[in-house]
């Protein structure tokens, strides 16, 4: 079944938020698809990078229900080729920020066993706690 979506005026708040966080003029994307064609990780993505841009344009928050923004490795292939000069990786980063700030799977440092804490990569810990601070 084809998804039915209602576009409400409030959707622009989400667009505005992503634009503020990413610093990109997302509305100028005309979805030529060069980002998707260039992306080395689309094989792992549920929706394409250009699809992310279009969904954000319409303020569709369900863009964050797909795994694509987590798959993006910020390799910047898309940025190097975007004919409208957009940085798509900044947009995926903004989406990750928004999702993280929702803190839906909050980590309690006290509950992590000490042995495990020693083993965990530092960057993973920093990533996990960043969502609590921003």
């Amino acid at each position: 079944m084809i998804k039915r979506v209602k576009i409400k005026s409030s959707n622009r708040d989400f667009l505005k938020k992503v634009e503020t966080l990413s610093g990109e003029d997302i509305t100028v994307c005309d979805r030529c698809g060069v980002c998707t064609g260039s992306c080395p990780l689309t094989i792992e993505m549920e929706i394409s990078p250009s699809n992310i841009m279009k969904m954000v344009q319409l303020g569709q928050e369900d863009v964050m229900d797909y795994n694509s923004m987590w798959v993006c490795s910020t390799c910047n292939y898309c940025t190097a080729r975007c004919p409208r000069g957009l940085d798509v990786s900044k947009v995926t980063e903004a989406l990750r920020q928004i999702k993280l700030r929702q803190s839906f799977d909050k980590i309690d440092i006290d509950k992590i066993p000490k042995e495990e804490l020693r083993e965990l990569p530092q960057i993973a810990l920093i990533g996990a706690f960043r969502r609590l601070t921003s």
Binding site: G33, G37, T42, S50
Partner: peptide
């Protein structure tokens, strides 16, 4: 050629 068919959502 590698290209996204943006109307079909396929690569």
């Amino acid at each position: 050629i590698k290209v996204e068919d943006t109307l079909n959502n396929i690569i």
